[in-house]
Amino acid sequence: MPSIKQFQVTFDCAEPERVARFWCEVLGYVVPPPPKGFATWDDFNRSLPAEDQGAWFACTDPSGVGPRLFFQRVPEGKVVKNRVHLCVRAGTGLVGEERLATLEAESARLVALGAVQVRILRADGVNESCIVMQDVEGNEFCLD
């Protein structure tokens, strides 16, 4: 059986471009070029029927290593906890107070972008510290 080489992470959301641009800032991702024949994404959007304008947006890892993130507009809002979430690896290799300080600094940067810090989970002897966050539309993610 062949192995899967790439995958995409899809977010349901109310404002695809807003959420995508937030995640670009979080992860250092970029907005890919607009489709062939269009100078900008705005030009592309204007070419669509009104009900499809702004219906989706995407961002990609400029190194080509990470998965593509796709954001699609859905009519319903988020009601309960995500079944899947991203873990942003901001403290890899760090332990103790150094790790927590690094995570708290990254949390402050993301809060300035519109994220919400939900809670800090402190090291317990088995697991290192992490911080539970929410993006600009309330989707949970972790800084770890």
Score class of each variant (00 low, 15 high):
Val9Glu: 03
Arg21Thr: 13
Asn45Leu: 11
Pro35Phe: 12
Arg18Gly: 06
Gln6Lys: 11
Pro32Gln: 14
Arg21His: 15
Gln6Gly: 07
Asp42Pro: 08
Phe44Arg: 05
Lys36Ser: 13
Gly28Val: 02
Arg18Lys: 12
Ala39Asn: 11
Val26Asp: 07
Gln8Cys: 04
Ala50Lys: 15
Pro49Lys: 15
Pro34Met: 06
Val26Trp: 00
Glu51Met: 02
Pro33Arg: 04
Phe7Arg: 02
Val31Glu: 15
Ala50Glu: 13
Arg21Phe: 11
Glu51Thr: 02
Glu15Gln: 04
Pro32Gly: 12
Pro34Ala: 08
Arg18Gln: 07
Asp12Tyr: 02
Gln8Lys: 12
Ile4Glu: 14
Asp43Ile: 12
Ala20Ser: 00
Glu17Leu: 06
Val31Ser: 08
Trp41Ser: 06
Ser47Gly: 09
Pro34Lys: 01
Glu25Arg: 15
Gln6Trp: 07
Ala39Tyr: 00
Asp42Leu: 05
Leu27Asn: 01
Pro16Thr: 04
Phe44Cys: 04
Glu15Gly: 02
Cys13Trp: 14
Pro49Ser: 14
Val30Thr: 06
Gly37Thr: 10
Phe7His: 09
Val9Asn: 05
Val26Arg: 07
Lys5Thr: 10
Leu27Gly: 04
Val19Lys: 03
Asn45Cys: 11
Trp23Ile: 00
Glu25Asn: 14
Gln6Asp: 15
Glu51Cys: 06
Glu15Asn: 06
Phe22Leu: 05
Arg18Tyr: 04
Lys5Asn: 14
Val31Gly: 01
Phe38Pro: 10
Leu27Ser: 00
Lys5Ile: 09
Phe22Tyr: 09
Glu25Ser: 15
Trp23Gln: 09
Pro32Met: 14
Pro49Gln: 12
Tyr29Thr: 03
Glu51Pro: 01
Phe22Gly: 07
Lys36Phe: 09
Pro34Gly: 05
Phe11Gln: 00
Lys5Cys: 09
Val30Met: 05
Pro35Cys: 13
Trp23Tyr: 11
Glu15Trp: 01
Lys5Met: 13
Arg18Phe: 04
Trp41Arg: 11
Trp41Asp: 11
Pro33Tyr: 04
Trp41Met: 10
Leu48Gln: 14
Pro34Ile: 00
Asp43Lys: 11
Val19Leu: 06
Glu15Ala: 03
Pro16Gln: 03
Val26Pro: 07
Trp41Lys: 09
Arg21Glu: 15
Trp23Asp: 08
Cys13Asn: 13
Leu48Thr: 09
Pro16Tyr: 02
Ala39Asp: 13
Ala39Pro: 08
Asp12Gln: 07
Phe44Ile: 05
Val26Lys: 07
Pro33Cys: 02
Arg46Pro: 05
Val31His: 09
Asp43Phe: 09
Pro49Leu: 11
Pro32Lys: 12
Lys5Ser: 14
Gly28Cys: 02
Arg21Leu: 15
Val26Tyr: 08
Gly37Ser: 04
Phe44Asp: 07
Pro16Ile: 01
Thr40Arg: 13
Leu27Arg: 06
Asp12Ser: 01
